[in-house]
Design a protein around this nucleic acid. Sequence first.
DNA 1: ATCTAATCATTAGATATCTAACTTTGTCTT
DNA 2: AAGACAAAGTTAGATATCTAATGATTAGAT
Lengths: 151, 151
Amino acid sequence: MLYCQIMTPFDRPPVGMNLARTSKVVAQAFDAAMVEAGGTLPVWLTLLSVKSKELANQRELAGMIGIQGATLTHHLNAMEAQGLLTRRRDPENRRVHQVALTEAGEAMFERLRKAALAFDKRLRTGIPDDKLAEFAEVLAALRRNAEPPQS
Amino acid sequence: MLYCQIMTPFDRPPVGMNLARTSKVVAQAFDAAMVEAGGTLPVWLTLLSVKSKELANQRELAGMIGIQGATLTHHLNAMEAQGLLTRRRDPENRRVHQVALTEAGEAMFERLRKAALAFDKRLRTGIPDDKLAEFAEVLAALRRNAEPPQS
DNA sequence: ATCTAATCATTAGATATCTAACTTTGTCTT
DNA sequence: AAGACAAAGTTAGATATCTAATGATTAGAT
């Protein structure tokens, strides 16, 4: 048994490991759903961040979806090459690139949005809302506990 | 607001997104703890799998920690080069490579095990055990709901 | 007004992961 | 016993991510 070397008090695998495994399985399934709709998980997140705050700078966009600026640059390059979005310098501050979706980008967003909503519904089947609320609370607590690396 | 385009019934971000973000933050914090103890997250998982079932074949080991065989090969190459483990062919079935820890590998395992246990304790602070049990149940439900891609 | 700092983005190089193709070895069928 | 098929691992090539270094532009200080 994998966990016998690190078993927690109540014979459950460590919560972090359980979290990571579940997240991986769910993310892979979500990515498959996005591919079926013509995109990918990171493309969906990028579109979502751009739609949520058009004209935001790239650091803000990256922060919204939990990746680094350099990673976002990569996705934006690919998506710009695909014709999903455009970048142009802000005339007010020529350091920032303003990102905007093209028509094709808007269409892709709509397709992926429908697929994402369907996936979320499927993911929640059989789980009552009060359970989901408590689940979200524990997730928040885990984030809080993970953050302070030194104290 | 990032979620306004995909808001779920009760004004909460989609559960899958919440799960992924939390898992990423927690995994990064865990990796930092492993680095502080002289290893990395994947090295820890690899050691754990080998310790859990010595002489297992590599597919079994990979499956235990949720990665593909090809990915495990990569880690084993690096760890063998570091002198943490050895591979030799099983005389009974020369297709399989038997993996075993060296003394240095055992020592690394002990160090990382202590760090992993400490991390798990820190991660659980302030979360009562019944909450954790319900949390694990929801994780299991999410895994189940994610799996059936077509039906 | 110029020099220094900070900010935004990109580039470069590393790690971790996946899938698909390939090699070696073993099993099964006829 | 030969040939086809299956299994275990590795290799090759792709994607996603990170950190650190670099370039361009702006803001601030003296």
